[in-house]
Amino acid sequence: MSVLAWMGLCAATGVLGFTFARGRACRGELAGEPTYLALHVAGLAAPSLRAGLTSGSARKAVRHLRTLLGTSALAITSADRVLAREGDGIPGDDRVLAEVAVVMAGGRPHVIAGEPGAVFVPLTVEGRMIGTLAAYDPEVGASLVRTATEVGRWVSGQLELAELDTSRRRTLEAEMRALRAQISPHFVYNSLTTIASFVRTDPERARELLLDFADFTRYALRRVRDFTTLADELSCVDRYLLLERARFGDRLRFTVQVAPEVLRVPVPFLCLQPLVENAIKHGMPGEVRVVIKDAGPEAHISVEDDGIGMDPEHVKAILDQDHKAGIGLSNVDLRMRHIYGHDYGLVVDTAPGEGTRIRLRVPKSRIAHDLL
Score class of each variant (00 low, 15 high):
Glu233Ser: 13
Glu233Cys: 08
Glu233Gln: 07
Leu234Met: 07
Cys236Asn: 11
Val237Thr: 15
Asp238Phe: 06
Arg239Ser: 15
Leu242Ala: 15
Leu243Asp: 05
Ala246Lys: 12
Ala246Trp: 15
Ala246Tyr: 14
Ala246Met: 09
Phe248Ala: 10
Phe248Asn: 03
Phe248His: 04
Arg251Glu: 08
Arg253Glu: 09
Phe254Tyr: 12
Phe254Ala: 06
Val258Ala: 02
Val258Ser: 08
Val258Met: 06
Ala259Asp: 05
Ala259Glu: 07
Ala259Ile: 07
Pro260Ala: 11
Pro260Arg: 06
Glu261His: 14
Val262Thr: 06
Val262His: 14
Leu263Tyr: 03
Val265Cys: 06
Pro266Arg: 08
Pro266Asn: 10
Val267Lys: 10
Val267Gly: 04
Pro268Met: 05
Pro268Glu: 02
Pro268Cys: 07
Pro268Ile: 01
Phe269Val: 01
Leu270Cys: 11
Leu270Thr: 03
Leu270Val: 05
Cys271Gly: 07
Cys271Arg: 05
Cys271Ala: 12
Leu272Arg: 09
Gln273Thr: 09
Gln273Trp: 03
Gln273Arg: 11
Gln273His: 06
Val276Gly: 15
Glu277Trp: 05
Asn278His: 12
Ala279Tyr: 00
Ala279Cys: 02
Ile280Pro: 01
His282Glu: 04
Glu287Leu: 13
Val288Leu: 01
Arg289Gln: 11
Arg289Met: 05
Val290Tyr: 01
Val291Lys: 07
Asp294Cys: 03
Asp294Glu: 03
Ala295Phe: 13
Gly296Phe: 08
Glu298Lys: 07
His300Val: 10
His300Cys: 13
His300Thr: 08
Ile301Pro: 15
Ser302Ala: 08
Val303Gly: 05
Val303Cys: 06
Glu304Ala: 09
Glu304Trp: 00
Glu304Met: 02
Asp305Gly: 00
Asp305Leu: 02
Asp305Ala: 02
Asp306Tyr: 02
Asp306Ser: 00
Asp306Arg: 01
Gly307Lys: 00
Gly307Ser: 00
Gly307Asn: 00
Gly307Asp: 00
Asp311Leu: 02
Glu313His: 10
His314Ser: 11
Val315Lys: 13
Val315Thr: 03
Val315Ser: 01
Lys316Gly: 11
Lys316Glu: 11
Ala317Phe: 03
Leu319Thr: 01
Asp322Val: 00
Asp322Arg: 07
His323Arg: 11
Ala325Phe: 12
Ala325Tyr: 05
Gly326Gln: 07
Ile327Thr: 14
Gly328Ala: 12
Asn331Gln: 14
Leu334Arg: 11
Leu334Cys: 08
Leu334Ile: 11
Leu334Asp: 04
Arg335Gly: 15
Arg337Ser: 13
His338Met: 07
His338Arg: 06
His338Ile: 09
Ile339Met: 10
Tyr340Arg: 08
His342Tyr: 13
Asp343Gly: 10
Tyr344Asp: 09
Thr350Trp: 10
Thr350His: 02
Gly353Thr: 08
Gly355Arg: 00
Thr356Ser: 14
Thr356Arg: 02
Arg357Met: 04
Ile358Pro: 07
